[in-house]
Amino acid sequence: MEARVLKPILGVYCAAFILFLYGPMIILAILSFQGAGGGPQFPIIEWSTYWYQHLLGMTPPSRISRLPIGDSLLRSLTLAMMTTVVSTTLGVITAQGFRTRFKASGAVFYLVILGMIVPGVLVGLGMALLSNMLGIDRSWWGTAFVLHVVYTFPFAFLVMLAIFNRFDRSVEEASLSLGVSPVQTFRRVTFPMIFPGVLSAMLFSFTLSYDEFSRTLFTSGRELTLPLTIYGTFSVEIYPNIFAFGVLTTLFSFTLLLVYALLMLRAVRAGRSFKGQEEAV
Protein backbone atom coordinates (compact mmCIF):
# COMPACT_ATOMS: atom_id res chain seq x y z
CA MET A 1 0.00 0.00 0.00
CA GLU A 2 2.81 2.33 0.91
CA ALA A 3 4.48 1.49 -2.39
CA ARG A 4 1.42 2.72 -4.19
CA VAL A 5 1.84 6.12 -2.56
CA LEU A 6 5.62 6.04 -2.82
CA LYS A 7 5.83 5.35 -6.52
CA PRO A 8 4.16 8.56 -7.79
CA ILE A 9 6.06 10.61 -5.23
CA LEU A 10 9.36 9.15 -6.37
CA GLY A 11 8.29 9.61 -9.98
CA VAL A 12 7.76 13.33 -9.43
CA TYR A 13 11.04 13.48 -7.52
CA CYS A 14 12.82 11.76 -10.39
CA ALA A 15 11.40 14.32 -12.82
CA ALA A 16 12.65 17.11 -10.55
CA PHE A 17 16.07 15.44 -10.53
CA ILE A 18 16.19 15.37 -14.31
CA LEU A 19 15.28 19.07 -14.33
CA PHE A 20 18.17 19.63 -11.89
CA LEU A 21 20.49 17.80 -14.30
CA TYR A 22 19.34 19.64 -17.39
CA GLY A 23 18.29 23.03 -15.99
CA PRO A 24 21.65 24.80 -16.21
CA MET A 25 22.28 23.52 -19.74
CA ILE A 26 18.83 24.66 -20.86
CA ILE A 27 19.39 28.14 -19.42
CA LEU A 28 22.82 28.19 -21.05
CA ALA A 29 21.34 27.24 -24.40
CA ILE A 30 18.66 29.93 -24.12
CA LEU A 31 21.20 32.59 -23.16
CA SER A 32 23.43 31.67 -26.08
CA PHE A 33 20.86 33.45 -28.24
CA GLN A 34 21.39 36.71 -26.36
CA GLY A 35 21.60 39.91 -28.38
CA ALA A 36 24.85 41.70 -29.15
CA GLY A 37 24.64 44.12 -26.22
CA GLY A 38 23.35 41.60 -23.68
CA GLY A 39 25.27 39.97 -20.87
CA PRO A 40 25.58 36.35 -19.72
CA GLN A 41 22.28 36.53 -17.83
CA PHE A 42 18.62 37.38 -18.18
CA PRO A 43 16.91 39.31 -19.49
CA ILE A 44 17.42 38.48 -23.11
CA ILE A 45 17.55 41.92 -24.65
CA GLU A 46 17.04 40.60 -28.14
CA TRP A 47 16.98 37.11 -29.68
CA SER A 48 19.86 36.70 -32.09
CA THR A 49 22.61 34.43 -33.25
CA TYR A 50 25.14 37.20 -32.68
CA TRP A 51 27.32 35.19 -30.29
CA TYR A 52 27.48 32.24 -32.65
CA GLN A 53 28.71 34.60 -35.35
CA HIS A 54 31.10 36.16 -32.85
CA LEU A 55 32.46 32.72 -32.03
CA LEU A 56 33.02 31.94 -35.68
CA GLY A 57 34.60 35.35 -36.36
CA MET A 58 31.76 36.57 -38.56
CA THR A 59 31.06 39.75 -36.58
CA PRO A 60 32.83 43.08 -36.83
CA PRO A 61 35.56 43.41 -34.20
CA SER A 62 34.26 44.42 -30.79
CA ARG A 63 35.77 45.01 -27.37
CA ILE A 64 35.07 41.38 -26.53
CA SER A 65 37.83 39.25 -27.98
CA ARG A 66 37.12 36.09 -29.89
CA LEU A 67 37.52 32.74 -28.18
CA PRO A 68 40.70 31.30 -29.66
CA ILE A 69 39.05 28.02 -30.50
CA GLY A 70 40.28 27.45 -34.05
CA ASP A 71 43.75 26.05 -33.37
CA SER A 72 42.85 24.55 -30.03
CA LEU A 73 39.94 22.64 -31.57
CA LEU A 74 42.29 21.17 -34.14
CA ARG A 75 44.78 20.23 -31.41
CA SER A 76 42.11 18.66 -29.25
CA LEU A 77 40.76 16.60 -32.13
CA THR A 78 44.25 15.42 -33.12
CA LEU A 79 45.10 14.62 -29.51
CA ALA A 80 41.84 12.74 -29.02
CA MET A 81 42.48 10.73 -32.17
CA MET A 82 46.05 9.85 -31.19
CA THR A 83 44.83 8.87 -27.73
CA THR A 84 42.02 6.77 -29.21
CA VAL A 85 44.35 4.78 -31.43
CA VAL A 86 46.94 4.09 -28.75
CA SER A 87 44.64 3.42 -25.82
CA THR A 88 42.34 1.18 -27.85
CA THR A 89 45.33 -0.79 -29.15
CA LEU A 90 46.72 -1.13 -25.64
CA GLY A 91 43.27 -2.02 -24.32
CA VAL A 92 42.77 -4.76 -26.92
CA ILE A 93 46.19 -6.40 -26.57
CA THR A 94 46.18 -6.18 -22.77
CA ALA A 95 42.71 -7.71 -22.57
CA GLN A 96 43.84 -10.39 -25.05
CA GLY A 97 46.80 -11.10 -22.76
CA PHE A 98 44.43 -11.45 -19.83
CA ARG A 99 42.71 -14.37 -21.54
CA THR A 100 45.64 -16.56 -20.56
CA ARG A 101 45.99 -17.02 -16.83
CA PHE A 102 49.20 -15.72 -15.34
CA LYS A 103 50.38 -15.13 -11.83
CA ALA A 104 50.57 -11.34 -11.55
CA SER A 105 47.22 -10.74 -13.27
CA GLY A 106 45.63 -9.25 -10.15
CA ALA A 107 48.42 -6.73 -9.66
CA VAL A 108 48.47 -5.80 -13.34
CA PHE A 109 44.70 -5.33 -13.31
CA TYR A 110 44.87 -2.86 -10.44
CA LEU A 111 47.84 -1.07 -11.96
CA VAL A 112 45.83 -0.42 -15.11
CA ILE A 113 42.65 0.53 -13.27
CA LEU A 114 44.64 3.01 -11.16
CA GLY A 115 44.98 5.11 -14.32
CA MET A 116 41.33 6.12 -14.17
CA ILE A 117 41.36 6.67 -10.41
CA VAL A 118 44.41 8.87 -9.85
CA PRO A 119 43.33 12.54 -10.00
CA GLY A 120 44.49 14.27 -13.16
CA VAL A 121 46.03 17.14 -11.27
CA LEU A 122 48.38 14.71 -9.51
CA VAL A 123 49.68 12.81 -12.54
CA GLY A 124 49.79 16.14 -14.36
CA LEU A 125 51.99 17.58 -11.66
CA GLY A 126 54.16 14.49 -11.60
CA MET A 127 54.60 14.49 -15.36
CA ALA A 128 55.49 18.19 -15.31
CA LEU A 129 58.11 17.51 -12.62
CA LEU A 130 59.46 14.56 -14.58
CA SER A 131 59.77 16.51 -17.80
CA ASN A 132 61.43 19.38 -15.92
CA MET A 133 63.96 17.04 -14.44
CA LEU A 134 64.68 15.28 -17.72
CA GLY A 135 64.72 18.58 -19.61
CA ILE A 136 61.93 17.52 -21.97
CA ASP A 137 59.74 20.27 -23.39
CA ARG A 138 56.11 19.87 -22.41
CA SER A 139 53.68 19.63 -25.29
CA TRP A 140 50.15 18.52 -25.94
CA TRP A 141 51.34 15.82 -28.35
CA GLY A 142 53.98 14.50 -25.93
CA THR A 143 53.63 14.85 -22.18
CA ALA A 144 49.90 15.56 -22.31
CA PHE A 145 49.26 12.78 -24.81
CA VAL A 146 50.87 10.04 -22.68
CA LEU A 147 48.74 11.12 -19.72
CA HIS A 148 45.59 11.03 -21.81
CA VAL A 149 46.41 7.44 -22.65
CA VAL A 150 47.03 6.68 -18.95
CA TYR A 151 43.51 7.95 -18.33
CA THR A 152 41.63 6.35 -21.25
CA PHE A 153 43.49 3.03 -21.55
CA PRO A 154 41.79 1.61 -18.41
CA PHE A 155 38.36 2.34 -19.91
CA ALA A 156 39.28 0.69 -23.21
CA PHE A 157 40.77 -2.23 -21.27
CA LEU A 158 37.62 -2.75 -19.19
CA VAL A 159 35.40 -2.60 -22.27
CA MET A 160 37.54 -5.19 -24.05
CA LEU A 161 37.73 -7.39 -20.97
CA ALA A 162 33.94 -7.45 -20.83
CA ILE A 163 33.78 -8.30 -24.54
CA PHE A 164 36.30 -11.15 -24.23
CA ASN A 165 34.45 -12.44 -21.18
CA ARG A 166 31.48 -13.46 -23.28
CA PHE A 167 33.48 -14.37 -26.35
CA ASP A 168 32.92 -17.88 -27.69
CA ARG A 169 36.38 -19.38 -27.73
CA SER A 170 35.33 -22.35 -29.87
CA VAL A 171 35.24 -20.12 -32.95
CA GLU A 172 38.92 -19.37 -32.51
CA GLU A 173 39.63 -23.03 -31.83
CA ALA A 174 37.83 -23.90 -35.04
CA SER A 175 40.18 -21.59 -36.91
CA LEU A 176 43.24 -23.14 -35.24
CA SER A 177 42.02 -26.64 -36.05
CA LEU A 178 41.94 -25.59 -39.72
CA GLY A 179 45.68 -24.96 -39.56
CA VAL A 180 45.45 -21.18 -39.20
CA SER A 181 48.09 -19.66 -36.92
CA PRO A 182 47.11 -17.75 -33.75
CA VAL A 183 48.13 -14.43 -35.31
CA GLN A 184 46.01 -15.01 -38.41
CA THR A 185 43.19 -16.33 -36.23
CA PHE A 186 43.23 -13.10 -34.25
CA ARG A 187 43.24 -11.05 -37.43
CA ARG A 188 40.65 -13.02 -39.40
CA VAL A 189 38.30 -14.25 -36.68
CA THR A 190 38.76 -12.63 -33.29
CA PHE A 191 39.15 -9.05 -34.39
CA PRO A 192 36.16 -8.93 -36.76
CA MET A 193 34.05 -10.47 -34.03
CA ILE A 194 35.13 -8.09 -31.26
CA PHE A 195 34.92 -5.08 -33.55
CA PRO A 196 31.74 -3.65 -31.97
CA GLY A 197 33.58 -3.70 -28.64
CA VAL A 198 36.57 -2.00 -30.22
CA LEU A 199 34.24 0.74 -31.47
CA SER A 200 32.92 1.26 -27.95
CA ALA A 201 36.43 1.43 -26.56
CA MET A 202 37.29 4.00 -29.22
CA LEU A 203 34.25 6.10 -28.41
CA PHE A 204 35.13 6.06 -24.71
CA SER A 205 38.73 7.00 -25.37
CA PHE A 206 37.86 9.76 -27.80
CA THR A 207 35.24 11.52 -25.70
CA LEU A 208 37.26 11.25 -22.49
CA SER A 209 40.39 12.60 -24.13
CA TYR A 210 38.55 15.34 -26.03
CA ASP A 211 37.11 16.66 -22.77
CA GLU A 212 40.13 16.05 -20.56
CA PHE A 213 41.82 19.08 -19.05
CA SER A 214 43.13 18.42 -15.53
CA ARG A 215 45.82 16.15 -16.99
CA THR A 216 46.53 18.63 -19.76
CA LEU A 217 46.78 21.73 -17.58
CA PHE A 218 50.40 21.29 -16.44
CA THR A 219 51.61 19.22 -19.36
CA SER A 220 50.53 20.81 -22.61
CA GLY A 221 53.13 23.59 -22.69
CA ARG A 222 52.23 26.77 -24.48
CA GLU A 223 49.82 25.47 -27.06
CA LEU A 224 46.39 25.11 -25.52
CA THR A 225 43.82 22.41 -26.13
CA LEU A 226 40.14 23.24 -26.33
CA PRO A 227 39.26 22.54 -22.66
CA LEU A 228 42.22 24.66 -21.60
CA THR A 229 40.90 27.53 -23.69
CA ILE A 230 37.58 27.29 -21.90
CA TYR A 231 39.34 26.98 -18.54
CA GLY A 232 41.16 30.20 -19.36
CA THR A 233 37.86 32.06 -19.36
CA PHE A 234 37.12 30.94 -15.78
CA SER A 235 39.21 33.64 -14.20
CA VAL A 236 37.88 36.45 -16.38
CA GLU A 237 34.42 37.79 -17.03
CA ILE A 238 32.37 35.49 -19.22
CA TYR A 239 30.26 36.43 -22.22
CA PRO A 240 27.52 34.57 -24.04
CA ASN A 241 30.02 33.52 -26.68
CA ILE A 242 31.13 30.75 -24.36
CA PHE A 243 27.50 29.66 -24.09
CA ALA A 244 27.26 29.52 -27.85
CA PHE A 245 30.43 27.46 -27.84
CA GLY A 246 28.90 25.15 -25.23
CA VAL A 247 25.91 24.51 -27.45
CA LEU A 248 28.08 23.84 -30.52
CA THR A 249 30.45 21.47 -28.75
CA THR A 250 27.50 19.55 -27.30
CA LEU A 251 26.02 19.23 -30.77
CA PHE A 252 29.39 17.97 -32.00
CA SER A 253 29.44 15.31 -29.29
CA PHE A 254 25.96 14.18 -30.22
CA THR A 255 27.00 13.90 -33.85
CA LEU A 256 29.88 11.72 -32.75
CA LEU A 257 27.49 9.58 -30.73
CA LEU A 258 25.20 9.26 -33.73
CA VAL A 259 28.07 8.17 -35.98
CA TYR A 260 29.03 5.61 -33.37
CA ALA A 261 25.47 4.33 -33.15
CA LEU A 262 25.29 3.97 -36.93
CA LEU A 263 28.64 2.18 -37.13
CA MET A 264 27.61 -0.09 -34.29
CA LEU A 265 24.33 -0.91 -35.96
CA ARG A 266 26.19 -1.81 -39.14
CA ALA A 267 28.76 -3.89 -37.30
CA VAL A 268 26.11 -5.78 -35.37
CA ARG A 269 24.00 -6.32 -38.45
CA ALA A 270 27.02 -7.53 -40.43
CA GLY A 271 28.24 -9.85 -37.72
CA ARG A 272 25.41 -10.74 -35.41
CA SER A 273 28.59 -11.76 -33.78
CA PHE A 274 27.47 -12.96 -30.42
CA LYS A 275 24.32 -14.68 -31.48
CA GLY A 276 25.76 -16.66 -34.37
CA GLN A 277 26.08 -19.85 -32.37
CA GLU A 278 22.67 -19.88 -30.77
CA GLU A 279 22.39 -23.61 -31.08
CA ALA A 280 25.12 -24.16 -28.55
CA VAL A 281 23.85 -26.39 -25.79
Binding site: D168, S170, V171, E173, A174, S175, S177, L178, G179, V180, S181, Q184, R188, V189, P192, M193, A270, G271, R272, S273, K275, G276, Q277, E279, A280, V281
Partner: peptide, 27 residues
Protein backbone atom coordinates in the same frame (compact mmCIF):
# COMPACT_ATOMS: atom_id res chain seq x y z
CA UNK B 1 40.19 -31.46 -37.88
CA UNK B 2 37.55 -30.64 -35.30
CA UNK B 3 33.80 -30.35 -35.78
CA UNK B 4 32.24 -28.58 -32.82
CA UNK B 5 28.99 -29.40 -31.19
CA UNK B 6 27.82 -25.80 -31.60
CA UNK B 7 29.44 -25.77 -35.09
CA UNK B 8 31.48 -22.64 -34.18
CA UNK B 9 31.09 -21.15 -37.63
CA UNK B 10 32.64 -17.78 -38.39
CA UNK B 11 29.59 -15.58 -38.03
CA UNK B 12 30.97 -12.71 -40.06
CA UNK B 13 31.68 -14.80 -43.17
CA UNK B 14 29.50 -16.34 -45.86
CA UNK B 15 29.12 -20.10 -46.33
CA UNK B 16 31.71 -20.09 -49.12
CA UNK B 17 34.20 -18.02 -47.11
CA UNK B 18 33.70 -20.24 -44.08
CA UNK B 19 34.61 -23.26 -46.17
CA UNK B 20 37.54 -21.56 -47.93
CA UNK B 21 38.86 -20.17 -44.63
CA UNK B 22 41.32 -22.94 -43.81
CA UNK B 23 42.74 -23.21 -47.33
CA UNK B 24 43.13 -19.46 -47.58
CA UNK B 25 44.71 -18.60 -44.24
CA UNK B 26 46.42 -21.74 -43.01
CA UNK B 27 50.04 -21.38 -42.00
Amino acid sequence: GFVFQNFALFPHLSVGDNIAFGLRYRE
